[in-house]
Amino acid sequence: MRILVTVKFVPDLQSQRSFTEGAVTRTGDDGTMNELDENAVEAALQLKEAAGEGEVYALTVGGDDAVAAVRKALQLGVDHAIHVSDAAIAGSDVFGTAKVIAAAVRKVHDEAPLDLVVTGMAALDGLTSMLPTALAAELDWSQLTLASGLTVEDGAATIVRHLPDAHETVAAPLPAVVSVTDEANKPRYPNFKLIMAARSKPVTTWTLADLGIPAEAVGAGAARTVVVDASPRPPRENRVKVTDTGDAGTQLADFLIERGLA
């Protein structure tokens, strides 16, 4: 079983997140591997362990700091780490990013065929959930997205997809791009041995030239959407907080009645 997991470097959820010049501010100080990617790493490791053989790659795209995302994946137990970094990638939209990741996936696939690419269900900065679909389309591989359950056997993958109106079971031949939800599994914690081992593991670095992608095909210039304004929302004003001394329920109801909400 050969699996590649995509991981993203995002601002820590607890940090003061912001925009700089129309893009999400990403710095090494308060950045981390996207939490939902832990479910993707876990799914890949479990499949490899169940198969009793195989290799798991973690791949990230981003500036120098983004290497922290694949380092985290190494700590969790993946075998190889790849960091695609090139100044020309900055400002890419989801389609540019998918093009870069697809080229990197093909490069690994050409060395020895991959069975799966596994991703998280969304990145907790942009939350668009579009990348897994764009990647599957770009690769022309099967698309099995939003998997709450995943099984692989006989050259096909089967997932369970929890949608608001129905739970679907969907099957498709390998190779496939699978995105897993946070219901899919419970991610493991890195143990001391893996943390130590991850320090000395090499990270392969590729540029656009290594992937055969012309700089003008990606980046801000090729993006179909442009952020023209980003500003912090004003905090809620005139907030009231009361401690119940016997009539707080009545006060709450009166507040709703006053606002025409009850």
């Binding site: 997140r17 939350l127 952020v227 023209v228 980003a230 912090p232």
Partner: peptide
């Protein structure tokens, strides 16, 4: 975005 702490305006080019 960011748990509704920021407003963003995007142009579709």
């Amino acid at each position: 975005v960011f748990a509704a702490t920021w407003n963003v305006r995007t142009r579709i080019a």
